[in-house]
Design a protein around this nucleic acid. Structure first.
Lengths: 148, 148
DNA sequence: GACTGCCAACTACAATTGTAGTAGGGTTGA
DNA sequence: TCAACCCTACTACAATTGTAGTTGGCAGTC
């Protein structure tokens, strides 16, 4: 276990990562320019964040063009999203149910969304049962034992 | 619009609120004792958080018993949860789809969960159409205009 | 070879968050 | 009445986060 699983990103850091995920590999300038003008911070601010992200192990510097460093994500958007979701789920007591209910309640979820999801799940269920792999609901709490 | 909608809670604050939501009304000592022993901070720490929560308008002091103050939540758990979800959704680009997909993918969501949800949504759909109210997916971005 | 820009590295600083100590006042049981 | 408690109010401080300035180097360019 490389302990990389504990990379925690702040909201702002995620926005930077978003740019980088989109670009897949970029210089600080490119990242900076990719940020929406409205909320575009100073170039050096981005630089600072990238440095911190590097320290956290979320991005890595791959090469150098001229004297500019080129960075790329060291963790996938999916992994980051999963992290975020897990965290939220934790706050919700570990179960996705209330979360779903809220989404539905707030109209963020349409009936079609759910139907499609259902199909997807059914599909997944089939695949899984054909490899004797049951991972349904043990991940949720197996995780809570890190830093006491 | 009373602008109370912008109460932002940190993770720790939410844990305190959780205790208070459960108790519905309590003194600092009660809240403190309600926290799980493992992660129970000093009494004064809770006190500090409560004070901050009060400043943020998330709890309010209702009465006094002896010289002890009794607090109660000034926002519902649901509202707080909604806030959290909205925030996460924002990070996901405003759509609940990827979020759902992730949950399913991670096995946090069972087929039954989804089936039940579907029923719920269908129900809701019926109710709504009988009041000519369509709010399906415009809430997501209509919201983004607070502090630029 | 000196000038102009772009870049990275370092430093700075305010706000927020987690965490708790201390002082002093009210409450109460003896 | 007074000592023992409990509670609040105030203060403190380190870590994290958002935000950016300053310095000095390398790279073309005239």
């Amino acid at each position: 276990m490389t302990r990389k699983r504990t990379i925690k990103l702040t909201r702002f850091e995620i926005e930077i990562m978003d740019a980088l995920w989109d670009l897949s590999s970029a210089s600080i300038r490119e990242i900076h320019e990719k940020l929406p003008e409205k909320k575009r911070p100073a170039y050096t601010t981005v630089q600072t964040i990238i440095r911190r992200l590097e320290e956290k192990g979320a991005v890595r510097q791959t090469k150098q063009i001229g004297n500019a460093h080129i960075f790329e994500p060291a963790l996938t958007r999916e992994a980051a999203h999963r992290r975020l979701i897990d965290e939220l789920l934790d706050l919700f007591g570990g179960s996705a149910r209330p979360l779903m209910a809220h989404l539905a309640e707030a109209g963020k979820l349409s009936l079609e969304d759910v139907r499609e999801l259902e199909i997807m799940l059914a599909q997944k269920g089939i695949e899984e049962s054909s490899e004797g792999e049951s991972q349904s609901s043990k991940g949720a709490k197996a995780r809570r034992s890190g830093k006491a």
